[in-house]
Design a protein around this nucleic acid. Structure first.
Lengths: 203, 203
DNA sequence: TCCCTTAAGAGACGAACCGTCTCTAACGAC
DNA sequence: GTCGTTAGAGACGGTTCGTCTCTTAAGGGA
């Protein structure tokens, strides 16, 4: 009875311990098994401590994910070609999805009504950088790529992930890029050039 | 004490009563409020009767949806143009989503692990019919449209619905068709013609 | 027509979590 | 050293789960 100095954690250390516990719980039992009660027990703390920091389990799960992984925004791929860059982004998404598990993603979608739309805007931001570099290289004309075209590949991959519950095969990513994104970008570039030529390079 | 012949329902009548009750419950309280207990109470029956027929609330909700609405497969649009047909399909999807509510859709995605993939294959089937007719009219070359291109518009709309929680603005549908789908189909048709011309119409 | 199998209707039951609340004691600021 | 804050722990009433039991209406077969 004399042993065990029961150190009482605070601040960042406590928060990290809880987020680690939450992630372990996700790993062990999936999003369905992620109960506040379980996390508190695993982190050896009280429920109140968790409720004080996060509103609900969706909130907690999101925090745990962010605590575990960094954003792609910190590491936009730069392979030297538009094709390589876009594929790298899509592969990054597919890998993350595999790490998270469809379980978690779907659970979050269902519960996190207040899911910061910004959460998903990371990808468009990365795409913007990639497209900017491709334009500099002369690979594409910046105006040829509308915002909707720019987000199409990532949207399709996300759709695939959300709908199928399975890891997205790499072939699908390649298909999206080679069969749709690149042809579309090139076709629009060509249309633009032709239009400009027809109007006598007026602009 | 003499009143109320307590007719005991069976078979189809009972099933319909339960599904109606389930839909009313969805309507009233959303997917979150769809508990077996509530549905049983509303349908004035026992929980066991429900559990006997459906495995869980996702199953029940799906059945209620199907009981309420018919499939687009029974009514593939035929407007006379590829653009019109595709837009009609996308608008059909958007309308259904509005009727169901994002709540329900997300809940199902999260819980219905066994969601019959066939559930979503209705749209590709409709697209195949539409594209077949467009090919007959000479609007597109059938080979120019790969399966992935054919499903792209619907996938993007579904993605939009799943991600945003809001009704999809009609402008987005138009954008998808006019900015991506049609240009892509036409570009690939043109590429094919050029390639055929270059090889001296060898084939 | 009567009987007998089936399943509807109703609710009790223990289990799991919820979110709130309370209590004690460790911590850190001053 | 004092004192306000909050971690750690768990009790609490409430909801829903899914299973089980019990009675009795329904309806087909002999």
């Amino acid at each position: 009875m004399t042993g065990e100095a029961k150190a009482r954690r605070r601040g960042a250390a406590l928060e990290a311990a809880i987020l680690d516990a939450a992630w372990d719980e996700l790993d062990a039992s999936g999003y369905a098994g992620l109960t506040i009660e379980n996390v508190a027990a695993r982190a050896r703390t009280g429920k109140q401590v968790i409720y004080r920091r996060w509103q609900n389990r969706a909130d907690l799960a999101l925090a745990a994910m962010r605590h575990r992984y960094t954003s792609i925004a910190d590491d936009v791929p730069d392979t030297g070609s538009l094709r390589g860059d876009v594929l790298a982004v899509l592969r990054h998404m597919a890998r993350r999805f595999r790490e998270f598990g469809s379980d978690l993603v779907h659970g979050l979608m269902a519960e996190a009504h207040e899911l910061d739309p910004e959460t998903f805007e990371v990808i468009p931001d990365a795409m913007a950088i990639i497209l900017g570099r491709a334009a500099e290289r002369g690979e594409v004309s910046a105006e040829a790529v509308t915002p909707r075209i720019a987000r199409m590949p990532a949207d399709l991959v996300r759709h695939e992930m959300l709908l199928t519950d399975r890891p997205v095969p790499d072939g699908v990513l390649v298909e999206i890029v080679d069969e749709m994104f690149l042809p579309l970008v090139r076709a629009r570039g060509r249309d633009q050039r032709e239009k400009r030529a027809a109007t006598g390079a007026s602009r």
